[in-house]
Design a protein around this nucleic acid. Structure first.
Length: 262
DNA sequence: ATGGCGAATGCAATTCGA
């Protein structure tokens, strides 16, 4: 089975790219971020025609997540509130950033982590607080269920310096600051491992390149899209790769897909 | 580098992303 994650930066703009990629790759579950569309306007049909079940949680203009699955998923949960309650969820579900479902006794959790703007900004604080809510969400879920977990998506965090094209001067940069890394590590400490790092230990592998200043052409990238797995699933993983082909195309997303094979 | 590029909104110019 292959599970992939891809921040498409608008599903309506990227529809042909996603159709093309799913046609040329055998993907069982695709987690999308930044769909940027309300649910009633989501282009479901083209993906259903490809044989996918479509699960969506979107909003106008910003954010938005979706899961496409060849087999039907069960126990779909959109947002934090149903898991953590209104008191802990506060207003964090106003931004649509989390959807999950179960397939083959794996709960796939699709995340679009806030980007955080710049270190010390209000959005940075929001990003750190969002991780507190995510922690409660995972704690509650793991109390209720005993599925293996695949937590994937756009984390907007490079956990190690080797995940950045040039880490010099980025020790307090957004996506690599100590508090962000600590917040993500705190999540991973419940027992999650980076699928990509099971197979590849060296640097210079990236999943996002800035549109500006020829980021992709100069390979100025960051590895910020991840698939994290609980132990049994991690042991079962047989590959995890980044496909840079979609990033080479005309009018691409600034992210490219990461694919896990189990 | 307070910029570079791209998407959405909505129809010009602004906000947001990372």
């Amino acid at each position: 089975m292959k599970i992939a994650t891809w921040n498409v930066n608008s599903i309506r703009t990227r529809q042909p790219h996603v159709i093309d990629w799913l046609t040329n790759n055998t993907i069982d579950v695709l987690c999308l971020q930044e769909t940027k569309v309300i649910d009633k306007d989501f282009p479901r049909e083209p993906f259903e025609e490809l044989g996918y079940h479509v699960y969506i949680y979107g909003q106008k203009a910003y954010n938005g997540v979706a899961i496409f699955s060849r087999q039907p998923m069960t126990d779909i949960i959109a947002g934090f509130t149903d898991v953590v309650g209104e008191e802990i969820a506060q207003n964090f579900d106003e931004q649509k950033r989390v959807i999950s479902g179960v397939i083959d006794d794996i709960r796939v959790i699709n995340l679009y982590v806030p980007n955080g703007a710049s270190v010390g900004s209000e959005k940075y604080e929001y990003k750190l607080q969002w991780f507190q809510v995510l922690k409660a969400y995972l704690d509650n879920l793991t109390k209720k269920e005993c599925h293996e977990l695949c937590i994937c998506g756009d984390f907007n965090i490079a956990l190690e310096d080797k995940d950045i094209y040039n880490p010099k001067g980025k020790s307090n940069h957004i996506m690599s600051s100590p508090l962000e890394r600590e917040a993500l590590q705190n999540i991973l400490n419940i027992g999650l491992k980076d699928a990509f790092r099971k197979f590849t230990t060296e640097g210079e592998y990236f999943s996002w390149w800035d549109y500006r200043s020829g980021g992709f052409q100069r390979n100025r990238g960051w590895r910020i899209d991840h698939l994290y797995l609980t132990d049994k699933l991690y042991e079962k993983a047989i590959n995890c790769t980044i496909d840079i082909e979609p990033r080479k195309q005309e009018r691409p997303s600034d992210h490219t897909p990461v694919i896990l094979e189990i």
